[in-house]
């Protein structure tokens, strides 16, 4: 059993979580090539990555900073840090 060490609710089986992917900010006013890069490309290099995780039993979303090389959660990110406004 693989355990996901969540800084908020403690160590839980990773089967209780859904991995949603990297936290990203859309390039709102960018040109088409930038948008295409945003849509189709991802950072694959190992290192610190901010990721969305969804814990199904509680129905709660978390943003974690994880070292993808060591597979260790470094810290919990407050959602205020990653929120952005969508242009009207």
């Amino acid at each position: 059993m693989k355990v996901f060490d969540c800084p908020v609710i403690g160590p839980r089986p990773i089967s209780e979580f859904d991995y949603i992917g990297e936290v990203r900010r859309p390039p709102m006013d960018a040109d088409e090539p930038t948008w295409a890069a945003y849509v189709f490309n991802r950072q694959g290099a190992p290192g610190l990555l901010r990721e969305w995780w969804y814990h199904r039993p509680t129905g709660r979303w978390y943003v974690m900073e994880r070292d993808t090389l060591k597979d260790e959660v470094v810290r919990f990110i407050d959602l205020e840090e990653v929120r952005y406004d969508i242009p009207a």
């Binding site: 089986p13 209780e16 039993p57 509680t58």
Partner: peptide, 10 residues
Amino acid sequence: MTSVAGVNCW
């Protein structure tokens, strides 16, 4: 709130 026998439970 956790998974019991594969079911999300409180």
